[in-house]
Nucleic acid binder design. Structure first.
Lengths: 338, 338
DNA sequence: AAGGAAGCTGACAGCGCTGTCAGCTTCCTT
DNA sequence: AAGGAAGCTGACAGCGCTGTCAGCTTCCTT
């Protein structure tokens, strides 16, 4: 039995193929009895619309593109899952497109995807979401897109973000409440602006407590475990080392914990450690890591939703969605030892 | 400027659109001078072939589907990366399709993808690669597919796997060489047959050393960190606990290490721990985990290669590729304390 | 130099849908 | 009961490519 086409279904149901098309696409203005007749024919022939024919005729692919750098980052899989949830509900597919955010031809590379009709719209995740040239290119090409956690040019497109600076502020406050006065901070990769800006939350909390920030307590990390460990070495080698270290992400915090183990520093007895992201390692490590959980899946799901709304031509009523982080206090933080 | 079509290019170059098509698709039998003329026109118009038109006309999507369960497993991202490498070289896209391997309608769900022309072929990862009904369904529908680490019905399609039972054997031998006599084993999820069968390697090594396997030293895990920790509790509570524990994957091994920390058992002083997979946590944990590294990316890249070869109608000369694991000795294993 | 093979090129149909628009039918309003 | 609006349906063109096949050109062999 050859694959059934829309014509076969139309013939069997005794209607035009346009009516079959209406039924398949859940369009209005089909009499209930007609709809049933068509549906019966579809079932009998086990008809599956050809994706490529639909795409060609309708001039859209029903595919969203997901751009990300650094696939090893734990959030990538969560972003994929969240975006896929919405995609499935809406009949879209998701095309993953890892890329290098530093690639000079990035804008061309991405625009090609759109111009070939491979995707109808794009979701950009950090740090790609902050690449100005790409964002501008998409805007001027009229490509629909949505960003996760952008930090610049926020009016360019709808976006979804968290209150993560506020969470960094809260986390720092908690450490202060535990009696820590010298709190080390490991900053995120400068290209990952959303991560890098968590530093502002740290600063704000110190300021509120009238503690003068010491530059030597701030180390520049690059989001990786190894960079976190290097920063920990520097901070712990200070003449007057910090009693707590707050790292801008969990991988770096894991590096701190590793270094502390090697120095036989007990955690949280001699050193409190806090991270950010609640990656799997945060829970698996010993001691388990106090960290901040972001609703990545929901953010991505929401982003896909905003994008699909745009594609349907509906004005996106809520161009920005702000979601809340949650602080998870676990074993790695405690009162300062006095 | 409207999007250029193949007709525009043909007109500008003064050739038929069929010739443009030949140039775009790198087909033979085009005179070099013609090819240049066409290429110049393509460049001038910045022509991008419409993916959907190609798909409709050629009756193929130029998309591979990747099936996996349990997206949180660390290998998923590596599989994606490896498959994408090959896809990009070959001009294919990759469609990710997470699914539940226990879903009764799985075969229908997947066949629909193919029948709608969304994908030309499929890559199945464990545990999906061992779902008999799906595999049979694909075979009888004539769908091209390739499996990673299948354990059953291996003649159904080309596949890629590692010598992981051998690696489990080797790892067990190393523990024996370190003087361990009572080696606990945490078995993998029974549905993940490739993981579950690592147990055979453990058994073989014991047998070779003429050590009688004790059933109480084998715990049934389910691949998760928490299941590993539960198994560790059982094993460490034995009247005569093991001096080493070999877990079938790193997440479970991390659970063992966590439990050991809580019991103040020094690693590897009082307990040696070995894992399998070399996930990021293996390196980040303290002490770092002795484990087995599998070339997941290369396997997936190879799988995509075999699949694309099939799609091109070339007989796949090498229907099975076996790749080698590598044992990584780190800090979590040592000589038995006597 | 002749003849066949190989190289090169284009005409044309058709892949299987959706968008547009016309027109008929049914319903609602007064 | 009449007339207009809304609901419903189908004819037809066309989306932009590739496959097939015919036929012309060039090259090679003897």
């Amino acid at each position: 039995m050859a694959k059934a086409t829309i014509d076969d279904v139309a013939a069997l149901a005794g209607v035009s193929m346009k009516t079959v098309s209406r039924v398949v696409n859940n369009e209005p203005n089909v009499r209930a009895s007609t709809r049933e007749k068509v549906q019966a024919a579809i079932n009998e022939l086990d008809y599956r619309p050809s994706q490529s024919a639909r795409s060609l005729a309708a001039n859209r692919s029903y595919v969203l593109g997901l751009l990300y750098d650094n696939p090893s980052a734990n959030y990538v899989i969560d972003v994929q899952e969240g975006a896929l949830q919405t995609c499935r509900r809406a009949g879209y597919d998701l095309l993953i497109h890892p890329c290098r955010h530093t690639e000079p031809e990035l804008a061309d590379e991405v625009l090609a995807l759109v111009r070939q009709g491979r995707v109808d719209g794009l979701i950009l995740t950090p740090p790609v979401s902050d690449m100005t040239e790409l964002v501008d290119g998409l805007v001027s090409a009229g490509v629909p897109f949505v960003r996760l956690s952008p930090t610049e040019n926020k009016s360019a497109c709808p976006y979804v973000q968290t209150n993560d600076q506020e969470a960094a502020y809260d986390m720092t406050c908690r450490l202060l409440e535990l009696g820590h006065k010298r709190i080390g901070f490991i900053a995120g990769h400068p290209d990952h602006k959303a991560v890098a800006e968590r530093y502002q939350g740290y600063l704000a909390a110190l300021k509120e407590s009238r503690i003068k920030p010491s530059p030597e307590l701030v180390a520049q990390g690059y989001n990786s475990f190894d960079s976190g460990r290097e920063c920990a070495k520097v901070l712990l080698d200070l003449p007057e080392p910090p009693s707590a270290i707050f790292a801008s992400n969990d991988d770096m915090a894991a590096g701190v914990i590793k270094e502390a183990h090697h120095r036989r520093l007990s955690i949280p007895g001699a050193l409190s450690v806090a991270g950010f992201d609640d990656t799997p390692v945060a829970h698996q490590i010993y001691p388990s890591l106090t960290t901040v959980s972001q609703p990545i899946e929901e953010m991505a799901s929401k982003a896909a939703e905003l994008l699909i709304k745009q594609l349907k031509g509906k004005a996106v009523q809520m161009p920005a969605a702000i979601m809340s982080c949650r602080i998870l206090v676990r074993e790695s933080t405690g009162e300062v030892y006095s």
